[in-house]
Every structure is written in C-alpha cells, then in structure tokens.
C-alpha cells in the first residue's frame, strides 16, 4: 500500500503548500481506489479460498457450529483420498491426450488458413472470410444431432475422434485471430523472401510462422483451457468410464460422494489447478487475445 505514496512524495517542497494539499488529496484518492479494488478482489477470490479451506478440513469440521473458517490443521491427505476414490489421474491423462492432438490439429490448420486470408487475393475471399466469422456465432448444439448420428454410423462413438477431428480444420476464432496477427506484419518481409527464391509456402513456414509465436501461443493456451473445461461434447460422445475427461469425471464424482464435501472440493480444486497455473503464466497474452476479438469482431 505504501508504494504509490513513495512515488507521489517525490519532489514535494514545503514551500508549495497548494501542491501538498493536491498531493494529499491524490494519495487519499489512490488509497480509496486500492481499498475498493481489494474489496472486489476479496469478493472474487473468497469462493476459491473457501474451497481450499473445505478441501483441507475433516468431515466434522465442515459441519461444525459455530463455523470454523480454517481447518485446525491442513489435511492434505484429502487430496490423496479424492484421487483414490475416482481415477482423477486417468481422467487428467485422457484430457491431456485429447488436448495434445487438438493442438497439433490447430497448429497445422490455423496458420495455413489464416495465411491465405491475410495475404492472398483470390475469388470468393470476402464471402469465405465472412463465413469464417459468422460460424463463430452458430451454437454448437445446432449441429450436434447430425454429427452424433454421423459418428454413430462410422462407429466413432466412445472414441476421442469426434472431439479431436474438428481441430484439424481450424477453429474460426483462432483463424480470425491469426489473420489479424499476420496482417500486422509488413509485406516487405514476404517480398524480400520471394526475391530470395522462397515460394508461398516457404514464406509461411520459414518467415511468418516464427514471427507468429505470440498468436500461436494464444491458440495453444486457449485450446488447452477450452478442452480442459469442455463438458457437453465429451458428455455426448463418450460412454465408458475409463475414457472420461476430467470434467465428466468430476461430475460423476459429485453423483457418487455428494456429502463428502472435503473430498469433493479437493477434487474440484485439483481440476481447476492446471487451468489456474496456465493462466498465471499466460495471462497477459490471453487477456490481449480476448481484447483483440472484442475490438474487431
């Protein structure tokens, strides 16, 4: 809290009385803003902290009255117990495998498609790009029944194919992001490379892709986040327990042990943890990515 004060005090001389009052006003205002922000931050974080506290409690502590805000001593073994009750590791591993193949798919398709829309002139380009954007708005459920019956016909139900295949055609959101990104790169780069004898694909893979790493990072991170959190599609396409993704596993856990809140919260927190960790590492880029779409979409 004292950090903003330090900066503001610099250069105050007692002679300029007026300036001091202005500064004091400023300091009070800054403090007030910080207070507001801390209160709001508390509101946003307290559910997560409460979840952690529950996850570390013994069962009787949860139902104790008067309520105990913190566990007397942290029972980390709740996590071990939760992972024993339901094969969480297996579900995480399943989800990670799906993510891995989806990432490969997106990395193959997205730059390729975006490159054409960002750099080439070709008949139908405007209409097609409009289609890319408008497909972002179509609710997935509109397509679900025919897709389901198609996968039934090909015998792909209860496999990961229905979840992975669409990634190899490029997700419109990422294509859009990538087009915007490539457009910011000077065309002189392409021209120089062309003079050096590279063809269109050489320009993409040797010149542009290395420069697109930030946009590709967003693509990979969001693929991870969305796939990790995805519920509806795994729910529809997967039947056998051992193939469940993490969110399905958690939902099943809820059905089975619905009164053991300490274990349930331990499991819930564990499914959130990878997302939180990833978020903290990539947050600047993620927020930037959302913002780009917000402005230009």
């Amino acid at each position: 809290m004292s950090i903003p004060l330090k900066g503001q005090n610099k250069g105050i001389s007692p002679v300029f009385n007026k300036r001091i009052t202005v500064n004091i006003k400023h300091v009070i205002k800054t403090l007030f803003i910080h207070l507001c922000m801390i209160l709001i931050a508390f509101f946003f974080l307290v559910p997560i902290l409460w979840m952690l506290s529950t996850a570390l409690k013994l069962r009787w502590e949860i139902f104790a009255w008067p309520p105990e805000w913190l566990p007397r001593e942290p029972h980390w073994e709740n996590f071990r117990e939760a992972f024993k009750r339901v094969p969480m590791w297996g579900y995480m591993w399943n989800t990670l495998r799906i993510i891995f193949f989806k990432v490969i798919g997106e990395l193959f398709a997205v730059p390729l498609v975006a490159y054409a829309f960002a750099r080439f002139r070709f008949p139908g380009k405007k209409v097609l790009f409009l289609l890319v954007i408008s497909t972002m708005m179509i609710p997935l459920q509109t397509k679900l029944i025919p897709l389901f019956s198609m996968y039934v016909r090909f015998g792909l139900i209860d496999s990961y194919w229905p979840l992975i295949l669409p990634a190899f055609t490029g997700t419109p959101f990422f294509i859009f992001l990538m087009v915007q990104y490539i457009k910011t790169m000077p065309r002189d780069l392409d021209d120089a490379a062309r003079i050096d004898g590279l063809n269109n694909y050489g320009i993409l893979y040797r010149i542009l892709i290395p420069l697109c790493v930030p946009a590709l990072t967003i693509t990979v991170t969001y693929t991870f986040l969305w796939t990790w959190n995805e519920f509806l599609q795994p729910l529809i396409y997967l039947n056998s327990y051992e193939k469940y993704t993490i969110q399905l596993g958690l939902e099943m856990f809820k059905g089975m042990w619905s009164v053991e809140w300490n274990l349930l919260m331990a499991a819930t927190l564990s499914t959130m943890l990878p997302v939180l960790v990833l978020y903290f590492f990539a947050q600047k880029k993620l927020i930037g990515g959302i913002a780009t779409l917000g402005l230009k979409g």
Partner: peptide
C-alpha cells in the same frame, strides 16, 4: 487486480458449478 478479477472467467464448466453448489 486485472489478473485476479479475470480468474473466475477462465475456470468454467463443471468445477465452477461444483464450487457454487457448495
């Protein structure tokens, strides 16, 4: 602050539903 306020928006799906149930 921005980082903190955005946290609930990145965790979603079943885990958030579970948290609120509790």
């Amino acid at each position: 602050y921005r980082t903190l306020f955005y946290i609930p928006a990145v965790i979603s799906g079943v885990s958030v539903a579970m948290l609120w149930t509790w």
